[in-house]
Amino acid sequence: MTTPAAAALPYAEFDGRPATEDDLGRALFFNYGHFTAMQVRGGRVRGLDLHLARLDAANRELFELPLDGDLVRRLIRHALESAGTADASVRVHAYLPPGNTATTVMVAVREPGGMDPAPKSLMSVPFARTAAHLKRPGEFGQTYYANLARRAGYDDALLTLPDGSVTEGAVSNIGFWDGTAVTWPQAPALSGVTMGVLERGLPGAGLKSLRRPVTLDGLGAFRSAFLTNSLGMAPVARIDGTAFTVDAELMGRLAEAYEAAPGEAV
């Protein structure tokens, strides 16, 4: 993925009120927490139930506190209304600053986004995120290796384990296609919401979906590959020296499966 252009700062609310300098300072200096990122169109989100389940599970794991989905939806609606839009990129962050007994929820709203659909080149790197199943801010390792990959002429990094197992992209999930089924790497990684929506929708589009180990030395078994994240999907043209077919038909079927999922009102 190409380096994003500079963008305006998002509109942010903390627990339903406009962010103050103190709020932002607390989030900066006490950033132990988690988040989810989503695309909102017409006040609706595909896979909203997965986003809410992610937030609640992470909050229970990190803070031993539930995070009510109805509360999160109200906070998102309020932030969208305050920002004057129903189409946006939205992030919901959860923190528990020192001394607090209740979770602080920040909702950030900015302009709608999307993934550049151009085929991507990935450089494999030896890095695995701590507690990879959690979506967290401030991931230094991912940014570090993504920048190294771009300097080497690639679009992004592909994270791998010491034994060569493929886990995930720097900010994405990766799927592989062998002509018969979509394979998601069975390894420590974040279960992305776009990936989750596809897993539910692929059988209805006539595509098998499975999880099994994928290794760098086994990439030749696959014809095509693709990335998914909250911004969308894009094909993979190569990983290191292994080239993949950019399959327009496959990408179309993936898009069809994703777009068939109904958007849920926030």
Score class of each variant (00 low, 15 high):
E64G: 03
A8Q: 11
E13T: 11
V105C: 00
M195F: 06
P18V: 05
D116H: 11
A58N: 05
G218D: 15
G175N: 03
L24W: 05
S165A: 12
A221V: 15
V109C: 03
G218I: 13
P97N: 05
D217L: 13
P188F: 07
T143W: 10
P98S: 00
L55D: 07
F30C: 15
A128Y: 05
E111L: 01
A132M: 05
G138R: 04
P213E: 10
P66S: 06
L65V: 03
L190P: 02
D87F: 02
R211Y: 11
A152E: 10
G169W: 01
P98N: 02
Y32R: 06
A118R: 14
A221M: 13
L65D: 08
G42E: 13
L148W: 02
N229E: 12
L134N: 12
K208G: 11
D56G: 10
A83C: 10
R110P: 00
G99F: 12
V193G: 13
P10T: 09
A261T: 15
A8R: 08
L190S: 03
L216T: 06
D68G: 11
M195H: 12
A237T: 14
K208S: 14
T3S: 10
L48H: 08
D56S: 11
A152W: 10
W177G: 06
T215Q: 10
L122T: 02
N173H: 04
A94T: 09
M1C: 05
R200Y: 12
I76R: 15
T104I: 07
Y145Q: 01
